[in-house]
Design a binder for these strands. Sequence first.
DNA 1: CTAGGGTTAG
Length: 463
Amino acid sequence: MLVLKPISPYRLSNLLRRLKDPNLALQLFQNPNPQIQSSEPQKRFRYSLLSYDIIITKLGRAKMFDQMEQILRQLNKESRFVPNEIIFCNVISFYGRACLPDRALKLFDEMPFFRVLRTVKSYNSVMDSLSKCGEFEKMMQFYANFRKKVTPDVCTYNILINAWCKRGCLDDAWKVFDEMRWNGVRPNAVTFGTLVHGFCANFKLDEALKLKEDMIRVYGIKPNASLYASLMKELSRAGELSLAFRLREEMERNRIELDARVYSTLISANFKAGRKEEAFRILEEMKVSGCKPDTVTYNAVIHGFCVEKDFEAANEMLNQMVEEGCKPDIITYNIIIGGLCKEGKWVEANDLFEDLPRRGCKPDVLSYRTIFDGFCGCRRFKEAALILDEMVFKGYAPSAASAHKLVGELSQEDNEELLWKVLTSLGKANLVVANIWDLVILKACHRHMLSNVCELADNLIVL
DNA sequence: CTAGGGTTAG
């Protein structure tokens, strides 16, 4: 039998780093030397802080929060070292991304019990998590308290500016900008990138372009690729593709390297403008320049093909991206499913939809809405009713317009059994709103079935 | 991954 040398703490970190599967990594972490377990009682393994960092980050990325917390508790028992703050910042971010604001706040509160000093970084992490979870009021409340304890830094202000921009309150975003300067904090490229993006997202191109000029002229800060990507996206949406290209030239003049996001923006913009050849040229150029197309880039290309109804090419791209080590995500599949539905290819769309779990993708709310709308559009009402029931069961809801449309169609078709089924599903999701009632009551009146409606009303109210 | 950007749908 092969006798392995016991794993050293240092080697454990290296192995953990290389293991892609978080479950395997966790197993290895919990039992680094299984082969010597039987012979003699194992000495307590001297984990390094680095190995804790790696396993916690891995578990957090995989959203394995209970296991992650367990490791945190184990870390807390270590007396040889004090965990660093950044691990906690990361965990708070994981909770933010998973929309678990209460867990983020709880961990923040517990940090002193881990003997970790909370600096402005942890405060910022909480602010950002609350903002990401849409807890704007809580975030402002937290901010009001936190100013009594630590001094906000540029990152704090950037988080605040971003939060205001997301609500469309650009004036308030500006106020934060003024406030930060008043407090002697210098804005950086991220600050301007955030503001420019806010302006673009709110269709204020002129202000966005002016801000790009001012940041150079007044503040002496060079715009970066992300800022350009925001501008290019909005320019092409507004039909100003040539201006977007001028910005690209400006980037090259100023030696600002184009990254995957800029390329994806340009590729998508060209497809949308019907310039397929140019889009391909840019994709080739991207590869030649050494910038690897990522999932988003491929999604843009696949979307282009789907709009062109070239599903063969779309599928080829799908294979190509996998070959190049680029994992298709749920957006990739939603694009293809949506494209197939639009062309009436509901069988193929459904096949792909049902294949999602096997392909390692969890259908999201948009997947369900897409396939549901697809079935409705192809007048496959039975399939639509089935998928509606499934999506409601999973806690997703169709768009109000689609729900209304389906009820309308079924009312007209005199398909009472299916109508009943659909209304029951909609009732479970609390989606039987006024205009749907109108349709049902209208139909019942026509058919002298008011007693049925009363019964339905009772059922729905009970639900 | 303490902060900002690019891809789907409406």
